[in-house]
Design a protein around this nucleic acid. Structure first.
Length: 804
DNA sequence: AGCACGCCGACT
DNA sequence: GTCGGCGTGCTC
């Protein structure tokens, strides 16, 4: 077994296969499947993953592995297989699949540089080159290019005076801090203490300390607790009484926080009924998918916690997915309170190093539970006992870059391997999941009542067209405004929700109707107030805000669209004494600011919490008795077959923030389309009727869950090219599918141009097409290289969530 | 993805 | 005649 099959870090069609390498003798026992290695590849050196060891290769002249990057494999057998599964099901490259399963810190960086060849002295080089090598023995290739030295360097390289070196940089940096620990046994320590001069009080203190706690201690900590200086330790180290060493520490994002340990709460009869089947599945080690459908505030989390408790008792591990976890610090707290140090947390708010450290805790089996966003589904546990996906309907569980996987599918795949249950929890399940539960593919568990038997909040829908007709041109209806004032008087709290998406502020000329568009993308520019700039959200193009219309020179430029900032201003004008906390991308950009704002609100430092999407979830504060949705229909008008579903879910979620505890809650939903069933039924919080109604629509329009979808998007700089290629693709696919399949397109994408590239797409609706996957692969094969560098890009998304 | 190899146009 | 454009094909 001295040959390794390696998947190399080159995401391209032609390299999407294993390459064989010889394992040098001295590495024979280090290199195993799942190890990252550095291998020579053509003239360069790159990173790769060993997938398999073997004795023979069909290749005769094998090159050798340069070195391993890991001492223990980063991918175990299960994850290697999962990677293959992922590749197959997302039509992406193997290397991308492996990389997505690991923390970003493990992805290699490459550096190309020039070094003085052995035996060459600087003076042999021509003057200007010698200059560059005088101080350092190496020169970064990019710098050389910038200085225009490439030609010269090539000559010198040919003459053998310099070498071009390719370096793989592991960006993993383990954090190390100086630690001090005794170098001798306690008896000797006592002896040493007696020998110290009586003035050496610092050294005495250190020895006394170690007599009580002989384990290594961080130097900085030791100095400050004993109130001594570095000198004492240095002299002790000199006498070899203590040792100072850099020891690895974990970056712990929750280090500053204290979590009070809490025990299980008593379950209600309903919760009890719901948890029994889950516990039984854990007990029998049977794979089963549960859909835990419980209204907001019905106590789903406690069911998760107690199921995990049982899994831990059996010596197994648990994965809990929550949507973008930094958004729900309350959730993390509950897990940490219950399971303490056994919990690792993974979310996008962590730095690469912190993520890597959390990942390593899992790999080293130091934790048993991971709570995290989408990518936590790949946590390298080896004895999984349960996977929980909270807010199952959330679209953020679908990754929108390659590999375009859905965490739910990965969860089920992994749970099958470990014969363990998956619990999907939601107050507003996705239609797909609920339909599966109806069909019996998932087991439905319902929690129809709130835990404390608190009624669901009373919801009032306000027709904003009516408000306009009566002359109210503000963004607050009379009703909502009165209620807000009322809450402030009663010292209760209000949550105001503004869905900005699809309605971002743009600038329009009131005389000629000119709207500023991005010159590279067919999309309107968004007005950013903080730097007075117009910005394109797709390519990053920025421009100044015009003072006169570029079309007609009119000065009547108007800002459209309502942002949270504007709402805040208007609110303060109307109720100057209101204390408002605003939460949006601008105010929560900094790390930890999200949590800070929420804590401030919880402590009653504000009357009103005003925010976007991010406040729709997980807020659970007793004093919130009013929720206002300023405009319910902004997302209803998006060109997306899920827009009704999303609207219903969002409105229901937001409404659920009110009256979760003793005080009853009220909700006011402002809308321009009160008659739409998703608004109306969110008002009565009637998921079942919404489900019926929406299923009807989906059936009529042939959308999921009745049909599967696949989306092919083609982009190129030339419109003609895009259209003709997409046409060919559509024809090809149609020819390979049965008559039941529907191929829509080619049509221009909802955003027809991004970054000067035209985009066309073709949507495939089907029920069962075993040939589809092969057909799509053929397309990718053909076009990805035919026009490879020429700029034709083709992306395939199986089960897309965003049809843009 | 990089990079080398190789085959055609505009220059000393 | 040579420098350099980027089209083509390979990397164990």
């Amino acid at each position: 077994m001295n040959i390794a099959s390696v998947i190399v870090d080159v995401p391209a069609k032609q390299t999407d296969k294993t390459f064989d390498y010889k394992i040098p003798d001295h590495l024979l026992d280090v290199i195993k499947p799942g190890t990252r290695v550095i291998v020579p590849f053509g003239p360069r050196k790159i990173q790769g993953f060993v997938t398999e060891l073997k004795d023979q290769s069909s290749f005769s002249k094998l090159r050798s592995i340069v070195e391993p990057l890991d001492l223990t494999p980063v991918l175990n057998e299960e994850l290697l297989q999962l990677g293959e599964w992922l590749t197959e099901h997302t039509l992406s490259y193997k290397i991308s699949s492996y990389q997505v399963m690991l923390p970003a810190a493990l992805k290699a960086k490459y550096e190309k540089k020039i070094m003085l060849a052995k035996g060459t002295v600087v003076s042999e080089l021509p003057g200007n080159l010698a200059e560059s090598f005088k101080e350092k023995s190496e020169l970064k290739w990019d710098d050389a290019v910038a200085k225009g030295l490439v030609q010269q360097l090539q000559k010198e390289a040919a003459a053998g005076r310099i070498d071009v070196v390719y370096q793989v940089k592991d960006r993993v940096r383990k954090k190390r801090l100086k630690h001090v620990y005794p170098a001798i046994v306690p008896e000797e320590l006592k002896e040493a203490r007696n020998k110290l001069s009586s003035q050496a009080s610092g050294q005495q203190a250190v020895i006394d300390f170690f007599l009580e706690h002989p384990e290594p201690v961080e130097q900085r900590l030791l100095l400050s607790t004993l109130g001594i200086s570095q000198a004492s330790i240095t002299s002790l180290a000199k006498k070899e009484i203590v040792k100072v060493e850099e020891l690895e520490v974990y970056r712990d994002p929750y280090a500053e926080r204290k979590f009070e340990r809490k025990t299980a709460l008593e379950l209600t009869a309903e919760q009890e009924n719901a948890i029994i089947p889950i516990l039984s599945s854990i007990e029998k080690e049977l794979h089963e998918v549960f859909l835990l459908y419980g209204v907001t505030g019905s106590g789903k989390t406690e069911i998760y916690l107690q199921s995990i408790q049982e899994v831990l008792r059996k010596g197994k591990e648990a994965i809990v997915l929550v949507p973008e976890i930094s958004l729900t610090p309350q959730m993390v707290t509950r897990f940490k309170e219950r399971f303490g140090d056994l919990v690792a947390v993974m979310h996008s708010g962590l730095s690469a190093g912190e993520k890597y450290d959390e990942w390593r805790k899992i790999q080293r089996k130091e934790v048993k539970v991971v709570v995290g966003a989408r990518s936590a589904i790949f946590a390298p546990f080896e004895n999984l006992g349960i996977i929980i996906i909270d807010e199952e309907h959330e679209t953020s569980y679908k990754q929108e870059e390659n590999p375009r996987y859905h965490a739910r599918d990965v969860a089920i795949q992994r749970a099958k391997t470990y014969a363990c249950p998956v619990v999907l929890g939601s107050a507003t399940p996705s239609l797909e999941s609920f339909a599966r539960a109806q069909k019996g593919r998932y087991t439905l568990l319902s929690l129809p009542k709130r835990m404390n038997n608190q009624a669901l909040p009373a919801v009032e829908i306000v027709d904003m067209r009516e408000e306009l007709r009566t002359g109210n041109r503000s963004m607050f209806s009379v009703k909502l405004f009165e209620k807000i004032k009322d809450r402030i008087e009663r010292k209760e709290q209000t949550v105001l929700f503004l869905n900005k998406r699809g309605h971002s502020s743009f600038v329009m000329c009131r005389d000629c109707g000119y709207v500023m568009n991005c010159p590279h993308c067919d999309i309107t520019l968004t007005y950013h107030r903080y730097n007075e700039q117009m910005k394109c959200h797709y390519c990053g193009y920025e421009d100044r805000v015009p003072t006169i219309c570029p079309e007609c020179n009119s000065e009547h430029i108007r800002y459209f669209g309502t942002g949270t900032q504007k709402v805040e201003e208007e609110l303060l004008k109307l109720i100057p004494e209101a204390r408002i906390i605003r939460m949006d991308v601008d105010t929560t950009g900094r790390k930890g600011s999200h949590e800070k704002l929420l804590t401030a609100f919880q402590e009653g430092q504000a009357d009103i919490l005003l925010g976007t999407q991010m406040i729709a979830k997980g807020l659970d504060f007793p004093n919130i008795t009013l929720v206002g949705v300023l405009s319910a229909d902004t997302m209803l008008n998006l060109p997306d077959f899920r827009s009704s579903e999303k609207t219903f879910q969002l409105l229901t979620q937001v409404s659920g923030r009110a009256g979760r505890h003793k005080l009853p809650g009220e909700v006011v939903i402002q809308t321009y389309t009160p008659e739409h069933y998703s608004v109306e039924l969110a008002g009565t919080q009637d998921y079942d009727r919404f489900y019926q109604q929406e299923m009807l629509m989906r059936k009529v329009h042939q959308y999921p869950p009745f049909y599967y979808l696949s989306l092919v998007t083609v982009s190129h700089e030339e419109l003609m090219k895009v259209v003709s290629v997409t046409e060919k693709i559509a024809k090809f696919i149609t020819s390979r599918l049965s008559k039941d399949a529907v191929v829509l397109g080619p049509v221009a994408s909802p955003i027809p141009r991004i970054n000067d590239r035209y985009r066309y797409q073709c949507l495939i609706k089907y029920k069962k097409e075993p040939e589809l996957s092969t057909a799509l692969k053929t397309i990718l094969d053909q076009y990805q290289q035919e026009m490879g560098s020429g700029g034709l890009q083709i992306s395939v998304d199986l089960n897309p969530y965003i049809l843009m």
